[in-house]
Simulated scan of single mutants.
Amino acid sequence: MTQKSIGVAVIGAGMAGRAHLNGYRTASTLYEAGLPEIRLVAVADAYEPFARDAARRYGFERAETDWRAIAAAPDIDAVSVVVANHLHREIVEGLLAAGKHVLCEKPLAPGVADAQAMTDAAAGTGLVAATGFTCRRSPSVNAIRREVTDGTLGRVQHFNGHYWCDYGHNPDAPMSWRYKGGIGSGALSDIGSHLIDLGEYFCGPVESVRGAVLSTQVPDRPVPLGTAVGHSADVAVGDRREAVENEDIATFTALFRNGAVGTFSVSRVAFGLANALGFEVFSEGGAALFDLSRPAEFTLADTSAPDRVNGYRRVVVGPEHPYIAGGLPMDFPSVGHGQHEFFVWQARSFLEEIAGLDRLPRCATFAEGLHNLRVIEAITASAHAGGKSVTVQ
């Protein structure tokens, strides 16, 4: 039995917060009937102009400046938490105590201790507590995974992945919370958490890591004079500079429990690459490649053709692949999609789980978000130990 309606709210009206807002606004237009009415109730942000503007843009009823107003509101059932990592625990625990379902952006917390406390707080509540690993919602990623688990590729032997961005390349771009927190909570957790999750999505749990290097290339940044959204460099800065406390670049190798090997490269100072996530999987039965800049396609090679005409072939995503049929206004082959749709499909999955429906793959749980941080903790420990092998706890 599903509930009559679900009131939703988003805490955090910055870049990723707007993606969540758009996801909720669009989710009810997808797939089969049966989802309860979705009420777009509130947006909260400590900076009131952001909250008001986001509420207006995405059709939410009201704007708030304090997350506690969201927790106390009887007309809100489900909340996305999309704020700085160090704020997650207090907000999430407060929402859970108020009986709200929670979708918390990755990384779940700054470190393992906070993530464990959040996971413990969610246990036994009967509430949906999900972690926002949106790349899992990619049709291409899931099409490749289907070929690994049920198709021609079979067990992955080597996962090679990168997530290269340039939002931190300019040394005079303003200081923000992303550059605070100890080594191991910079680029590694900000964008590397997605890459680690994808590696495990294909290969299963990471058993150990080694050869980790964490490097800070920009030692300090100017203090902003105003409030910036996301990675924006438009805000004015002063003459005072503050030290960058975490890494710009992270590289490491991993051994997966199934025997596969992983090689990973993460950077927020990769000039000219705004959002370059990509990976290769090399399997017993072939290989596949994915590039986020071309999200509606992937490249596949297997043993289905004779050697004289075999090789990599481009596969354009369509209704035969996950999420597309009923998941786009034009669910026709080759229409295409982008990263914004990942958030829409994630929101739909979150809402369906709340409604007691069992039609889409579930979102990642808090337990998976906690495990992701345990891998990051092991990578950090390896880097501090000169690259020695560290077992994931």
Score class of each variant (00 low, 15 high):
V156G: 10
S80T: 12
V141Q: 11
C135E: 12
P333F: 07
D239V: 09
E245K: 15
V281S: 03
A296L: 10
P49M: 12
G161W: 11
A381V: 07
M118P: 09
S265V: 11
S283P: 06
D291H: 12
K4L: 05
M175A: 03
K388N: 13
R348P: 01
D150P: 00
A117P: 00
G59M: 15
P205A: 13
V82D: 05
T26P: 00
S334L: 02
H158F: 15
A19E: 09
H101C: 08
I324F: 03
Q393V: 14
G238S: 03
N372D: 13
I38T: 10
V317L: 14
V209C: 14
G151W: 09
S28F: 03
Y47Q: 04
F133T: 07
T29A: 13
V375L: 06
R89Q: 12
Y31T: 02
R68C: 00
E48S: 15
A13C: 14
M330P: 00
V8R: 07
L153E: 05
A243E: 09
P174D: 03
A305Y: 14
D234T: 06
G14R: 05
P306D: 13
L289A: 03
V244I: 04
I379L: 11
C203W: 15
L188V: 09
F264I: 15
I249A: 01
V335A: 11
V92K: 02
N246L: 02
V235M: 08
R155Y: 04
R348Q: 06
V261Y: 14
G192I: 03
A270D: 10
E64A: 11
P107A: 07
A72S: 05
R348H: 08
G151I: 06
L360M: 11
F159N: 14
R62K: 08
A212H: 07
Y167L: 01
A173S: 10
L103T: 03
R362N: 15
L95K: 05
E37K: 13
L195M: 11
N170W: 02
H371C: 07
R268E: 01
G369R: 07
G192Y: 01
G181M: 01
E90D: 04
Q3S: 10
V235G: 01
E245W: 08
L360C: 03
T299G: 04
A355T: 12
A69W: 00
T65E: 10
G14T: 03
F279M: 13
G259C: 06
F50S: 11
Q217W: 05
Q217L: 13
R240P: 00
K106H: 05
M15G: 00
L153Y: 08
A33V: 06
F202E: 10
V213I: 13
L21G: 04
G272W: 15
G184K: 01
Y163L: 04
D220Q: 13
N310L: 09
V244A: 02
N160V: 15
R137T: 06
Y167I: 04
A54Q: 06
Y179L: 04
Y201A: 08
A367Q: 14
K388H: 13
F50T: 05
D190F: 14
G94R: 09
I91T: 04
F133P: 02
A325C: 05
E93R: 14
E280T: 14
L87D: 02
R308F: 14
G230V: 03
Q393W: 12
A98F: 06
T131L: 10
M330C: 01
L30F: 09
G12P: 04
M330R: 12
L328K: 07
V281Y: 03
P322R: 08
A305W: 15
L273P: 00
V235I: 15
F133H: 12
A385E: 07
